[in-house]
């Protein structure tokens, strides 16, 4: 073999076996690439270790009562986050119902031949731009546009349907409803994008077969396309939920940061992320440890949800591509 290479080189060709120097650079470069890939694993491990280490005193001090109690009082050094866990899950769930419904509707709208190519590009750009607006800008918009807009409606709902737990209090300003609405807007692009991907994976002949049997467009969508894409849509919803759980700034600006558990859409509440955002900058040593514990709780919740979402997504890809 090397004779062939040498012959090629001798005749002025460009090919040839690597020189010793090239071998050395190759080794070095591959080593660097390998260690860079390793850095990702190290980074995640370091994050877990560092958060765990900082939270350790608080974990030892408060133990499980941290997630079952409902006071946050820095001056008395009493810390527990049940209202924040409730607020995180409740706001994300509300956002998921709304953002999920709209996200899936838009995914169907974009993939099931409702509109021509050009219009689809317009709507896709709109959804992508929605994803590009920073969280803090949505927060500002929520304060000065959404809350004033919601106030009259909330007042009317509270006065006429106040017995209903969802409308149990009045919207005094910031509260669950504006927070969940903005959250819904923010997760809509995530849900839509992953669902579009799920619908795109369905082979075209599936739709043709449905139409061939005489279904209307919506019979095909509801009875054939949606069930076929169901695992992908589920992944979209779970990952959207995960996104909502960790969202911080818009919520810190809109939810009211009040330490209470309420079903009412109009009462102020708090989430783990906005607790961190609003208390961290001015926290003392003991409170920082408690906040680290809260961060650990948030990390655990989002980690579980995201891993579940990724697993479902992986399952979908394998189902359609037959990858091992």
């Amino acid at each position: 073999m090397s004779n062939l290479f040498q012959a090629a080189n001798a005749s002025g060709g460009v090919s040839g076996p690597p020189s010793a120097g090239e071998y050395a650079t190759d080794r070095l470069f591959r080593g660097i690439a390998l260690s860079s890939a390793f850095v990702i694993i190290l980074l995640v491990a370091y994050i877990l270790w560092e958060l765990g280490r900082e939270a350790a005193p608080a974990v030892g001090e408060y133990g499980l009562s941290f997630i079952t109690g409902s006071t946050w009082n820095a001056s008395k050094a009493q810390f527990s986050v049940l209202p924040e866990i409730w607020g995180t899950l409740y706001s994300s769930l509300l956002a998921l119902v709304l953002g999920g419904a709209f996200g899936i509707a838009i995914a169907i709208f974009l993939t099931q031949d409702f509109i021509n190519h050009r219009l689809a590009t317009v709507f896709r750009t709109i959804v992508e731009m929605l994803a590009a607006i920073p969280s803090v800008v949505f927060g500002l918009w929520g304060i000065y546009v959404l809350i004033p807009l919601l106030k009259p409606g909330a007042e009317w709902l509270h006065q006429s349907l106040g017995w209903f737990p969802l409308f149990g209090t009045d919207l005094a300003g910031p509260g669950m409803a504006p927070a969940a609405l903005v959250l819904a807007i923010m997760i809509l692009p995530t849900v839509a994008a992953i669902s579009v991907d799920a619908f795109r994976r369905i082979p075209y002949k599936v739709k043709e077969a449905a139409y061939g049997m005489g279904t209307t467009r919506w019979e095909a969508i509801l009875k054939v396309m949606l069930p076929t894409a169901s695992s992908g849509v589920l992944a979209a919803l779970v990952l959207g939920f995960g996104r909502a759980l960790g969202e911080t700034m818009a919520l810190a600006m809109l939810i009211g940061n009040s330490n209470q558990i309420s079903l009412s859409l109009f009462s102020p509440a708090n989430t783990l992320a906005s607790l961190l955002a609003s208390n961290f900058p001015e926290a003392g040593r003991v409170e920082v440890q408690a906040l680290m514990y809260a961060a650990l709780v948030l990390l655990a919740i989002t980690f579980l949800v995201n891993v579940a979402g990724l697993a479902v997504q992986q399952y979908t890809i394998r189902k359609f591509e037959g990858k091992p």
Binding site: I47, R243, T248, L299, L310
Partner: peptide, 14 residues
């Protein structure tokens, strides 16, 4: 992939 869903505030905490 897990890190893409990592709440951004936790990067700050870290």
């Amino acid at each position: 992939k897990v890190l893409t869903g990592f709440p951004s505030i936790l990067a700050g905490v870290f």
